[in-house]
Structure formats: C-alpha cells, structure tokens
C-alpha cells in the first residue's frame, strides 16, 4: 500500500534510522572529502602563501603541463591494454575452471592466492623478478638464449612490466566473477547444441559469449574503474619511472599532494574522477542496470 500523505510512517522512520550510520560514514568520509577536493581545485593552495581563489587556473596549468598529459596518456593506455588482457585471460581461466577434472578444487584455491596478496607486496615480488642481473624474467630469457632486458629501466619495458604485474594480481578476480557467470549458463543449452552438431567454437560464440554478456560488462566495469586509479603497483614497482613514463594520474596527484601543492593536485584528481565517472556511466548504459535494479 502506498501512502499518499506527507506523513512519514514509523516503518520508514525506523528504516532511515538503520541507514543513518552508513549514510553518515559515506557522506563524512567520502563525499565531504571529494567535495572538499573539488572546492580546493579552484584555489592556489600551497604552503606559506595565503590561500587564494584562482578560478580555473589550476586546470589551465594542467592542460599546459606536458607531465600531466603524459600521465593522462599513460593511464588511458594502461586501462586500454590491461583491462582487455586481464578479461581475456580471466575468461580463459574461468573456462578451464568450469570443466570437470582432477584437482579442480586445488586450482580454484591457487587462483585466489594472487587476488589475496596486497598489491604493494606483489609489486616488490615483481621488482625482484625484473632485476636486471638475477631476476627470474631475465634468467628465463637466458635459458632461451636471449639478451637480458632492462625491464624497469626503459619506458617500454616498464610499461610491459607493470601491465604483467597488474595482470598477475587482478586476472584472478576477473576469472572468479566470469566463472560464476559461466556456471549459471544451463548445461541443457550445450547438450542441445551438441545434438545440433555445433562445434566447440560455435558453442562458445553462439551460447557462452552472448549469455555471459551482462557478467562480462560487470567485470569490465570493475576492472576499468580499478585500472583507472592504479597506484600501489606503480608506486612500489617503478615509482612512476623511468622519467615519468609510468606515472598514472593517481600517482601524479599523490606527488603534488605530498609536495604540499593541494590546489594543483586536487585539480588533477578531479579530472581523474571525471573520467572514472563518465566511463562508469557508459558501462551502466551498456549493461542496462537501471532497469535491472528494482
């Protein structure tokens, strides 16, 4: 029964009471700081100088700052390369885990391990793996009789290096979500397709992929939002280098925050936030989620 009067009934009031702590936390600890950051972005806000309103000047300086453009380009390229890579690998792992074979339970457990390791720790492990003279990566190249690579010392090597390290840590997440999607596809469909003599690839492209679409979009959304704000692995593995080649927008903003230039840092992170927001909207539109949530 819908009530048409303005009076809020007891039930609703109790419900608001139950929600209040959550809303207070989200408002006080997330929305207020974000609003504060947006507000700070139109000020010159540096140590030892009076805080002054300068309008869009921080944004104008950012657009004229080659280092900002470089970190924007790196961030977008990182998303563009790592998200599809991790999703395709994740789908591969999920397809394997969806089969029946001896040791499947153990393999599922093994897949959870990289996901559970803190990114800062995996960053250190990969820093060691990429060590020029004794890291596992170059030892493997040596076994293949190839020249050792300067992984973290060159811009392209560092890019590949962070993509691979990030893929190790996050592919399992994609695999776990996609596996849940796969196991929700009714077995009957495949049985019927076999009767109709549809091959492995036909079954995959005609049944698996279309039915997996909503889960794929959720995975892509989560991974994209996460990859856009990549920070931990870069801070630890490359420190944003060499020469700023792997400085993401998060790292760019962090550097200015820790240098005390709050206005400039805030403006940079507002742009990052805007990009994340727009991309989320695109995904929500693609997935049609507004219809699904009742």
């Amino acid at each position: 029964m819908k009530k048409t009067s303005f009076h809020i009934d007891r039930e609703t009031r109790a419900g608001i009471g139950f929600l209040a702590p959550l809303l207070l936390c989200l408002i006080g600890l997330i929305l207020v700081p974000v609003a504060g950051t947006i507000a700070t972005s139109v000020f010159r806000d540096v140590p030892y100088l009076p805080k002054t309103f300068i309008g869009a000047a921080n944004y104008v300086s950012l657009l004229n700052d080659p280092a900002f453009w470089r970190s924007l380009m790196f961030t977008l390229l990182f998303v563009l390369v790592s998200v599809p890579l991790e999703t395709v690998f994740g789908l591969g792992i999920a397809l394997v885990l969806n089969q029946v074979f001896a040791g499947r339970g153990m393999l599922r457990a093994a897949v959870l391990i990289p996901w559970a390791v803190p990114a800062a720790v995996s960053g250190r492990i990969f820093e060691l793996i990429y060590n020029y003279s004794y890291g596992a990566a170059n030892r493997m190249l040596a076994l293949l009789h190839m020249e050792p690579a300067n992984w973290l010392g060159s811009a392209s090597g560092a890019f590949l290096g962070v993509v691979a390290a990030d893929a190790w840590k996050t592919t399992p997440f994609a695999a776990i979500i996609l596996l849940a999607g796969l196991s929700a596809i009714p077995e009957d469909l495949y049985r019927q397709a076999r009767v109709d003599r549809a091959g492995t690839f036909q079954r995959f492209f005609r049944i698996t992929l279309p039915l997996l679409r909503p889960v794929l979009i959720v995975t892509l959304l989560f991974r994209t939002v996460d990859a856009l704000r990549v920070f931990d692995i870069l801070y630890v593995l490359t420190g944003g280098g060499p020469g700023g080649a792997t400085t993401s927008l998060s790292l760019f903003g962090y550097r200015y925050f820790s240098a005390g230039d709050f206005g400039y840092a805030s403006a940079a992170t507002v742009i990052l936030f805007g990009i994340a927001f727009l991309l989320s909207l695109v995904y929500l539109k693609l997935g049609g989620f507004s219809r699904e949530i009742r």
Partner: peptide, 18 residues
C-alpha cells in the same frame, strides 16, 4: 546505485583532503 557509485571514486581524489 548511489552506494555503489560512491565506491567508484578514485581514493586519490579524497586522500589529500582527508
């Protein structure tokens, strides 16, 4: 949806103010 949207904020966009 709003609660979900909140988790989409990049942490760096609030850590300075925090």
């Amino acid at each position: 949806l709003l609660i979900l949207a909140v988790s989409m904020f990049p942490p760096v966009s609030l850590v300075g103010y925090l």
